[in-house]
Amino acid sequence: MGCFGCFAPEADEDLKPSKPDDSSGADARRKVAPDVANGYAHSFTFKDLSVATGYFNDANFIGEGGFGKVYKGKISGQMVAVKQLARDGVQGRNEFLVEVLMLTVLSHPNLVSLVGFCAQGDERLLVYEYMPFGSLESHLFGNLSSNFLCFLFVLANDVPLGKNPLDWNTRVRIAVGVAEGLSYLHNVADPPVIYRDMKAANILLGEDFSPKLSDFGLAKVGPVGDRTHVSTRVMGTYGYCAPDYVQSGKLTIKSDIYSLGVLLLELITGRRIYDASRPKPEQNLLTWSRPFLHDKRKFYRLADPALLGCYPPSALNQLVVISIMCLQDQPHVRPIVADVVIGLKHIASQPYAPERTPASMSSPANSGSPQLVRTPSRKRGGRRSAQYA
């Protein structure tokens, strides 16, 4: 693409923790105006977006994050999502500028599209295509339907009440799409882009559950030439950051691979990377899963109970192995994202295909009633017991 010439890092030096990470914002300020002038993103007035969202009516509120509140709206008949920067928010104007820059020059089916922005006075807003199914986080850790058989399974297997599970095939399809979006950033964008904020909350879903990476405020241009890393202040979400990045501040594309491994483990288990509502030994997903990750015979113990056993055992094992590879402590041991995509597509070629799919599962097409399947029992001795799934 050759579109980040003025955005590349100028020096490979460590930043002190107290020093603001302003390099991306400074370069963004030099680049945003030409891009916008060329029509890559529309500049809206604050009044335009106020009217579009019903003056930021609570009825149109759809979420909130580090950037600020998000509202749905309509502009020229097109549904959009409008993010309004909170003046006292965690993320600031540098992230706003970086995101405008990134999304005006990057384009891929698995990246969210930027419709436009507003930078009027003290107001900073971003306008995206509207993703009607919300975030992966809301579906993966969200509400369970009231289907009676699922309710019985909840009581018998400690599945959290109110959770609406994604079916296996949908989870794998989401994993493939996320990896393909990341592959575009690493292998097609020139120079490569390090996403740096991979997490379930930043994966948005279309009507057919097609995933798109969003929130590029923390993205960084990757190392170029002889450089092996970008030195920067450590930023990201707890649990998703690679240990080598946390310890050294040296950011590489392999940092994204570790975060992808965490996301894959969340898709497998239906558990958050950190969940304070669980018993203390289970609050950290990596700590809880470690005994199972080290023994192939226990891989099935990682499967989200809300899947009701509806998954191909061999494909589950393969997905666990890919997650383990991505989660290696040493970055040079982790795979490149292109190989991850190949592996995930191989898993997707082995879909779970029951005669009837549980109606409670979230998927683009779900119908029928639960089917009697057999899954490994959790009882000692590995006996197999019949369960409704």
Rank of each mutant, 00 (worst) to 15 (best):
D48I: 05
E10H: 12
G63R: 04
D58F: 00
P376K: 07
P165K: 14
V90L: 02
G222R: 02
Y245T: 09
N164C: 08
D35P: 00
I336D: 15
P211M: 13
Q120P: 00
D275E: 13
T375C: 06
G25H: 11
K83F: 01
P279E: 12
S377G: 13
G309F: 06
K280G: 01
S377I: 04
P312G: 07
Y240M: 01
C6T: 05
G68K: 07
G162C: 04
Q283A: 05
G63N: 04
G77F: 08
S43Q: 13
V159L: 15
F151T: 13
K199G: 02
F141L: 14
P364M: 07
L204P: 12
Y311F: 11
M325R: 15
V224D: 02
A242H: 14
I268P: 11
L152Q: 13
S50V: 01
N284E: 03
S349W: 06
L344K: 12
Q350E: 10
G261S: 12
L285V: 08
L263Q: 07
L316C: 11
A81C: 04
P291S: 05
Q350L: 13
C310H: 03
S259C: 10
I336H: 15
P17A: 14
E10I: 04
S323N: 12
V36A: 14
A156I: 06
G89E: 00
G39H: 10
E123D: 09
G134V: 00
Y238M: 08
Y274R: 11
K250Q: 14
V127P: 01
L307A: 01
V100L: 12
V51G: 00
H346T: 09
A59P: 00
K296N: 03
K72G: 05
R171W: 09
G249H: 13
A242F: 12
G249E: 09
S24Y: 12
T287Y: 15
F4E: 02
F209D: 04
I322P: 08
A37C: 04
M1E: 09
V80R: 11
D88Y: 05
V234L: 01
G39A: 09
Y55S: 00
R87F: 06
L263D: 06
L293T: 00
Y388H: 03
H139V: 05
A81Q: 10
Q120C: 03
S367G: 05
K212W: 12
D226S: 07
Q371P: 00
Q330E: 15
F7A: 08
F56D: 01
P313H: 10
R30C: 10
A201Q: 12
P312R: 10
I75S: 01
